[in-house]
């Protein structure tokens, strides 16, 4: 059965997403949906951050809307957005042929390796807020970075055992290349033509303009500072409440996930405050450190749950 032309990943943004989902589903990944919270990158999704910890095998793929308030350009820059999509794949432990699987995904979306120059260029990844790092590459296609490829070594301050392989595709950039357009806003979203055609700009341009105003000029900083403190306190509170009694038979932690939500929230509040320019250089470090402490505590709690490998 051949697919309708408007589903072609080289013509349709959503076609690209659907093709990647199908490909990774075929490779045995769970296809999850985006996490329902604001976050800076797909890595923050508990399906990556927390699932990367502990001994259990895990394979998942999902799209994650990512918010980087500082990257907003009022819709005027053809390459930068404060809200964009990442396609995230995590395989734990990484299979030995992960590079081949990745190249297979490029083939699936129409990148022919007989025509295109694919390269793995050193790029070590580190997330100070998550206390995480890994080694890997930027994957280049004809001189353009189209994905990040990382072997997680540490997350939330804990050694990954086993190591997970993480792939992140910058969907808009990849689609721009496949569709041959020079501006994100010109991307064909649904692959249709004429009156039925919907562009990325139709869907998101207004949002980019409005959120840029919000992020840079109007976001209520007093409220954001308060929310940061609240999220930090709530995270600690839930972690404490979920901690098992010292003498209980069941030593599992009972609330790692709700606590981690508050860590995600604190991180996003910090990003908004940073975009508003109200955090000085010296304070910046201390905020990052505070989020990292939450992430570490959540990671420690997760390792005491069933998902983290403790027997029920």
């Amino acid at each position: 059965m051949s697919e309708p032309a408007h589903m072609n990943p080289a013509r349709s943004f959503q076609g690209l997403i659907l093709t990647l989902q199908r490909y990774w589903a075929e490779q045995g990944c769970l296809i999850l949906q985006p996490y329902d919270m604001e976050m800076g990158a797909g890595t923050f999704h508990p399906a990556t951050t927390l699932r990367a910890l502990g001994p259990k095998s895990w394979r998942a793929a999902y799209v994650q809307p990512s918010r980087r308030p500082k990257d907003g350009r009022y819709g005027e820059n053809p390459n930068r957005l404060q809200h964009y999509y990442q396609f995230q794949v995590i395989l734990k432990p990484n299979p030995p042929n992960l590079q081949e699987l990745y190249l297979g995904s490029l083939k699936a979306i129409g990148i022919d390796t007989a025509l295109h120059d694919i390269r793995f260029v050193e790029d070590d990844w580190e997330s100070p807020t998550l206390g995480a790092w890994g080694l890997g590459w930027e994957c280049w296609c004809d001189g353009m970075e189209v994905s990040q490829f990382t072997y997680f070594q540490q997350v939330a301050g804990f050694e990954c055992s086993p190591v997970a392989g993480e792939l992140t595709y910058g969907l808009e950039r990849l689609a721009m290349y496949l569709q041959g357009v020079e501006s994100i806003y010109d991307l064909n979203f649904n692959g249709l033509e004429g009156v039925e055609k919907v562009t990325y700009g139709d869907v998101f341009l207004q949002a980019e303009q409005e959120y840029s105003r919000h992020n840079f000029e109007h976001a209520d900083t007093e409220m954001l500072f308060r929310h940061f403190r609240d999220a930090e306190a709530a995270c600690r509170k839930y972690l404490e409440a979920g901690e098992p009694e010292a003498d209980a038979n069941d030593q599992r932690h009972l609330m790692a996930l709700p606590a981690y939500d508050q860590c995600i929230k604190a991180s996003h509040m910090f990003n908004l405050l940073d975009a508003r320019g109200v955090i000085s250089v010296t304070e910046r470090q201390s905020y990052i450190l505070r989020v990292r402490e939450l992430a570490k505590a959540c990671g420690a709690a997760w390792l005491k749950t069933e998902g983290g490998g403790v027997a029920a």
């Binding site: 990484n94 299979p95 030995p96 072997y151 086993p162 190591v163």
Partner: peptide, 12 residues
């Protein structure tokens, strides 16, 4: 800089 990987990285 060096790294661990794959199923073998389950073991210290």
């Amino acid at each position: 800089k060096s790294m661990r990987w794959g199923a073998a990285s389950r073991e210290p």
